[in-house]
């Protein structure tokens, strides 16, 4: 579904993207799993700290763009030790032509986004029963 596999070398840990973003803060590349089922492609993305309403998904010209934002809780907190930062997540996926763009669905649970990209009906494998004449 994507030609990412041959294109990218990347660290396993949360990596920061260098972007021309005008928004302040850090932008990270989320870890993803991509599966292909007979009927659909499924993408799981780790987006810890992101609420459902802070995710934007766009599908345009065969490219699916995932954008998400998460904020640190405001308050009188003085950081003592910091291993992760607030900011955003961004990642793009090249989607193959057999995805039906009108039926793409997404849901969030415990900071993990699940994207379901159903294949168009005519591309799905079909069992053809041979009828007796």
């Amino acid at each position: 579904m994507s030609n990412e596999q041959s294109r990218e070398i990347e660290p396993r840990a949360k990596s920061e993207l260098v972007t021309e973003d005008t928004r302040p803060g850090f932008v990270f590349r989320p870890d993803v799993d991509i599966l292909e089922r007979p009927d659909a492609y499924v993408i799981h993305a780790d987006l810890p700290g992101v609420a459902e309403d802070a995710v934007d998904i766009h599908l345009d010209k065969g490219v699916l763009t995932l954008d998400a934002r998460f904020a640190e809780e405001a308050g009188e907190r003085r950081p003592v030790h910091v291993e992760y930062r607030a900011g955003g997540y961004h990642r793009e996926f090249r989607i193959s032509e057999d995805v039906d763009p009108t039926r793409v669905a997404a849901k969030m649970k415990d900071g993990v986004l699940e994207l379901l990209l159903p294949k168009t009906a005519e591309r799905q494998p079909r069992r053809i029963t041979v009828e007796a004449a």
Partner: peptide
């Protein structure tokens, strides 16, 4: 018919 194309989440 199920294939894993990418597995980064540990």
């Amino acid at each position: 018919g199920t294939a894993v194309h990418r597995r980064e989440r540990q």
